[in-house]
Design a protein around this nucleic acid. Structure first.
Lengths: 207, 207
DNA sequence: AATATATCGATAAAAAGATACCGATAACTA
DNA sequence: TAGTTATCGGTATCTTTTTATCGATATATT
């Protein structure tokens, strides 16, 4: 159940957006071929992706029940359970993420922000308290936090990561544009806007 | 030269961060095996990635000259030429991207922001003028813009994309969490934070 | 009720990507 | 100067992912 490829996860996420749109339009059922056509993805790929995660099996001449399918994808992507996470680095980007109310829809609950700047400590951003980094371990154990978001300047990214790992965090979501060393048992996902951009730019140049 | 795989581009971007760190530490040369070891990537993969884009060939027992390698990666990723882009949707996230000075280092120059909100039109964010969306086509043709960033609320994402495509933009970088329909000849890169998160969360669950 | 058709899901083939192996080469060492 | 060693780069293999093909099935149509 857990061995979904990264590309498949990426696509599932796209299907989800697409299906929610369709549902809002009042459409009840949809076929994999229709999805594939609208999204410019090979139909068999779509079928494979859906077959792996769908509880229902699609009906010939009808397709899949959209509502059930949305639920299945959400479950597969982990959006239906709630994970507590913390955020370290309450700068501009940190603010944006703290303020983004949509995360709950993705099974993510930011319990608190952390910083070393005393002028930020004690404030509240969008209902989330900002603590000094010293209190990280407390919060992590209290709220059973497994994931942490890094939005500090790149000079402090390694130190922030070390703090979080010491506090018991197992998964890092890194927005700082730098390489971070982590032990084997910790996962990291680098959110590198520049590389996304490079991919787009590269595709564009091919034309 | 242009047919670098997406995964390779992703990795090249990581190498770049890593190599810049090493350069700052005063290190002159580095071997692919060292890079691979530090980054937990297979050594052959690193060699292949570098071989494809490096102008120099690495020297036995020394490795690659870091400075040259950095330059080669930047060239391969398109960071050494400057592309003009526009941004549509001057909300919170739009502000962050407009304010981010690091883009220049990635060959990206945001020439202007666009919005429909009259209270925003005419203002300047971080040196970049905000225009009404009606003026998009003018700016695109004047500055030879090929790429556009979408940071509008998801309800308006399709309309924004249509505007940009009509204005002649060929590549879209979409931050709105929704599916966008585009013609065949236009490229789109969906920047889906939720799916990144799902990938991390999924890896975490495997353990 | 019988037939036609759209769709699914499974199996097979093809393509892409990652990994292993090995000879060649240039720097280090004695 | 000669031998040793670390590293590169190319070829071959293996794995993963995508795409193609085909029979089965449920729905719609006549």
């Amino acid at each position: 159940m857990s061995d979904i490829s990264k590309r498949s996860i990426d696509r599932l996420s796209l299907y989800l957006h697409y299906l929610r749109d369709k549902k809002e339009q009042g459409i009840k059922d949809i076929s994999s071929v229709t999805i594939a056509g609208d999204m410019n993805i090979n139909a068999v790929t779509v079928k494979k992706d859906l077959a792996r995660i769908a509880g229902q099996s699609g009906k010939p001449r009808i397709g899949f029940d959209i509502e059930t399918l949305i639920h299945d994808i959400q479950t597969a992507l982990g959006y239906n359970k709630l994970d507590n996470v913390v955020l370290v680095g309450v700068g501009q980007l940190g603010h944006v993420l703290l303020s983004y109310n949509g995360f709950a829809g993705y099974g993510l609950n930011i319990v608190a922000g952390f910083d070393t700047d005393q002028s930020k400590v004690g404030t509240v951003v969008c209902g989330k308290p900002i603590f000094h980094i010293d209190r990280l371990a407390d919060v992590v154990s209290k709220y059973d936090v497994r994931m942490g978001i890094i939005t500090v300047p790149k000079e402090h990214a390694q130190a922030a990561a070390d703090c979080m790992i010491a506090a018991g965090i197992q998964g890092l979501w890194n927005f700082a544009p730098t390489h971070i060393n982590i032990p084997e048992n910790v996962m990291i996902k680098n959110e590198d806007l520049a590389s996304s951009l490079a991919i787009l730019s590269n595709e564009l140049r091919k034309k």
